[in-house]
């Protein structure tokens, strides 16, 4: 019978209504799904083949993998990668918060500047930006701190101040800031206007409203996106290998350039990326749980 027909009395239902047997004597027979079993079998075979290949194919050279996985030069490179991620995220999100509030500002000038920044840094490929920062000394020989358009107090040789590592951090952070700004802005917009009105009506100081009322609620929608960005930045650090910085991917290339063992060394990098991304994902879970206080879902 179809869902649309709605006769007052349904004769077949009446006929099939269990009569004679007591409710306890009836057994329920679940629907069978034979095709599901076929799909499971096929998937299992493919998976087994893949795992078998990982173990039996000598090309993986697991002994070389084991030798380099915890080698000091690789560990040092992992540390550099983590530093790039940390500073890129910290500076990027700090600047992103500033840009987000500029875009939410009542001043059209601030809104436009922030939007212009986001537009520019989302439009230029990261690798191009990095090379720009790396070659900053070509544009500005020295950097001077002082009164804008007036006399300067301190001067630095750009080459010394913006080394390869800081150029990389700068590039990653400025790039990240553009994306972080939009994520933070989205989170702030997701907090209902009633929340701000209630906070304002209670006379809660402006900064406290942000810190105590708006941001904790905004965090719920910021976090999943921010975690995506951090993880993608973490893997994106491999791009700074073009600047000859000794991060994980660069270091692995150096080693296989020397010994020719490309596949096991790529696996070294791969497994490190997977491990650390997993750690970040686990952290994400706990941070999200913290900010889910009071939420029903």
């Amino acid at each position: 019978m179809s869902l649309t027909s709605d006769p007052p009395i349904d004769p077949p239902a009446v006929k099939e209504a269990p009569s004679g047997a007591g409710p306890d004597e009836l057994t329920v027979v679940p629907v069978r799904h034979p095709w599901r079993w076929v799909a499971i079998a096929a998937t299992a075979v493919l998976l087994a083949q893949f795992l078998n290949g990982l173990i039996t194919n000598p090309g993986w050279e697991w002994d070389v993998f084991a030798q380099f996985f915890t080698a000091p030069t690789i560990l040092k490179a992992v540390w550099v990668t983590l530093q790039l991620t940390f500073y890129g995220t910290a500076i990027g999100f700090a600047l992103g918060v500033v840009l987000a509030f500029m875009r939410l500002s009542a001043s059209g000038f601030l809104r436009t500047v922030a939007y212009g920044y986001i537009w520019a840094f989302r439009s230029i490929p990261l690798i191009v930006q990095l090379l720009f920062w790396f070659n900053l000394a070509y544009l500005y020989k020295e950097l001077t701190f002082g009164i804008p358009f007036g006399p300067g107090f301190f001067s630095f040789d750009t080459m010394n101040l913006v080394g390869a590592m800081s150029a990389a951090v700068l590039g990653l952070a400025l790039h990240q800031a553009a994306y972080a700004a939009e994520i933070v802005r989205g989170g702030v917009l997701a907090v209902g206007s009633g929340q701000l009105e209630a906070a304002a009506a209670l006379g809660i100081p402006k900064f406290r409203q942000l810190r105590r009322i708006v941001l904790p609620q905004a965090m719920r929608s910021i976090l999943p996106n921010a975690a995506n960005e951090i993880i993608s930045l973490f893997k994106g650090t491999s791009i700074v290998s073009v600047m000859a910085i000794g991060e994980l991917f660069y270091q692995v290339q150096v080693v296989y350039g020397r010994n020719g063992r490309v596949v096991p060394l790529l696996m070294v990098a791969t497994v490190w990326y997977i491990l650390l991304t997993t750690v970040l994902s686990v952290l994400q879970h706990y941070v999200e749980r913290h900010y889910a206080k009071g939420a029903v879902r």
Binding site: G194, A198, A201, L202, I213, Y291, A295
Partner: peptide, 15 residues
């Protein structure tokens, strides 16, 4: 702070 306001939709802070 000298004027209490009660909203139609309560606007309690959910967190």
């Amino acid at each position: 702070t000298k004027i209490g306001f009660v909203f139609q939709n309560f606007n309690l802070f959910p967190h």
